[in-house]
Design a protein around this nucleic acid. Structure first.
Lengths: 218, 218
DNA sequence: TACAATTTTTAGGTTAGTCTAAATTAAATT
DNA sequence: AATTTAATTTAGACTAACCTAAAAATTGTA
């Protein structure tokens, strides 16, 4: 069994390598997990010892097969609990991340598989993220950041890559909810702000930073 | 916020003082929590420092008002989650204790209150134990141990004071489930075994040890 | 009441996870 | 290529929670 803390490191590496390539740097981990680089180094040694990551000094870490499986299981639990919180308990999508951060560490396969069925075997969480299956496989539909689109392109919001309450509340307020159809009208060369049309109805301008965290399917 | 470990100590003191009076001894705690007496002493000092218990050297500990409130909140969570596991996910009553031991440490009042409503504001958990309300008050219906009854007395099973899987499975197998009506037929003077009639149908003899852990309402 | 047995505490040590500050390595810049 | 800057690791120390062994206090018993 891995500790709560070890699980959080594995999860961080999992998320970072999905985004940024394969090898994950000490500093990136320390930022996402909110510790010092020194602490991360210690933990990377420990995880490498347990064969959950491969680690090369001064380079960084990558998940091994078994590490990736452990990480995927945690992500699976996180996302299933989020569905539970929203669908069954009536929480809003911006309220569930923190609670799921705790629930994801509950240890019982039986529990998670029963929960999965109880929820109707959902394939995505309330933010559009895919839920890994019990083997740890993720149904990888390729999503694009809105910041990568050019004027004229269309897409429907299928996910977000930032789960903070403030961000999600802003999206909600602006009508940028899961499933909304977007048409890119303009991209400011100066700062990358994007002007777009939501559901052929409402025009809105968002910063590049916001655009980077909205994911669409085209 | 109290640590996972602190919460477990408070819960242990809570359960022990409910059963055995008010002052709880170091050794009793070390038995229920499965640590050494030395470790318990350390923790008692710490909890006393935090004003969650009052502690007198060589005597023992009692919960303060605030300690009792914290403990009751944990028990509330434990029991609500057990209801969830049985009623919503279809677990059996002997399968839920372990999982609830983990779930009880999840920190969110909002979550628990929503869960409470989702479950229909239950007043008892699957073992018949009363669920404290959000203020920490317990609806104390007085339950009697079957071992205290004498021939001729009747009662209906309303709770158990032992939650291990083996014990609960034995009860299940013997027809001693929540709600069953018992009539005491005989009590062996030699070893305290109790012969009783279940629902006016089936006669069975149980050991004194078993009888002590079945609670009835008369 | 005195001694033995039991319970509890103290003393000192361990491990996991964290930190700061200093040293080392790698990357970037001139 | 040499040097500066940035990233990373090492060294040493801290805290929470635990342990064993020895000392102290309490309880039980003769």
């Amino acid at each position: 069994m891995n500790s709560f803390t070890e699980e959080n490191y594995l999860k961080a590496i999992f998320h970072l390598s999905a985004e940024d390539g394969i090898v994950v740097s000490t500093n990136k981990i320390s930022e996402t997990i909110n510790t010092t680089a020194a602490s991360v180094t210690d933990m990377l040694k420990k995880l490498a010892e347990k064969k959950l990551i491969s680690y090369i000094k001064y380079q960084g870490a990558t998940l091994t097969q078994s590490g990736r499986q452990v990480a995927a299981a945690i992500v699976r639990k996180h996302r299933l609990w989020e569905v539970f919180l929203v669908d069954k308990l009536g929480f809003k999508w911006d309220e569930v991340h923190e609670i799921a951060e705790e629930l994801e560490h509950i240890n019982s396969e039986e529990l998670i598989n029963r929960l999965d069925h109880f929820l109707g075997l959902p394939s995505n969480d309330p933010h559009g993220d895919p839920i890994p299956d019990s083997q740890g496989n993720i149904n990888q539909k390729k999503l694009l950041k809105v910041s990568k689109l050019i004027p004229g392109q269309q897409g429907s919001i299928s996910g977000v890559s930032e789960h903070s309450s403030v961000f999600l509340q802003f999206l909600e307020k602006s009508g940028l909810t899961l499933g909304a159809n977007l048409t890119i009208k303009d991209v400011m060369p100066f700062d990358g702000s994007v002007t777009l049309l939501i559901n052929d109805l409402k025009e809105i301008t968002i910063s590049r930073e916001v655009a980077k965290n909205i994911l669409v399917m085209i």
